[in-house]
């Protein structure tokens, strides 16, 4: 059974066993506006928690996507590179950015679960 966690920087990570799938939240895509360019990490790359993993650019600006936890990249989603608008259409579903193999599941404890994230976002608005 998978579980989803959120960061203050508006990434989500869905954890299945030792593999986490990472994307950006609906709040993030809405704040960015029309996404026009995505740069993803190389498969096999080692990420540290909070490190820059990907770049997402909207018409107006470029932003970094940070890795919510430490791990090794095992897959990236080429579909969003080819069609960046997918990030606006289904940010918390089909438009995932990358998958990584977690090195320390304990790092998840520092992240928010859905109710806490929703409250956090509500405070920002």
């Amino acid at each position: 059974m998978s579980k989803v966690y959120f960061t203050k920087e508006h990434e989500w990570i869905k954890v299945d066993g030792e593999v986490g799938t990472v994307g950006i939240t609906d709040y993030a895509q809405h704040a960015l506006g029309d996404v026009v360019f995505i740069e993803l990490p190389e498969s096999g790359k080692t990420m540290s928690k909070g490190g820059e993993a990907a770049v997402v650019e909207s018409v107006k600006a470029a932003s970094e996507v940070f890795s919510p936890v430490s791990g090794q990249i095992v897959a990236v989603n080429q579909a969003i590179v080819d069609q960046p608008a997918l990030v606006n259409e289904s940010p918390e579903d089909g438009a995932w950015f990358f998958q990584l193999r977690l090195v320390d599941a304990g790092e998840l404890a520092g992240l928010m679960e859905r109710p806490a994230y929703d409250a956090y976002v509500k405070d920002l608005e």
Partner: peptide, 12 residues
Amino acid sequence: PVQFTAGILAEH
């Protein structure tokens, strides 16, 4: 206003 509900691409 930097954009309206349509968004920058649609407005462009």
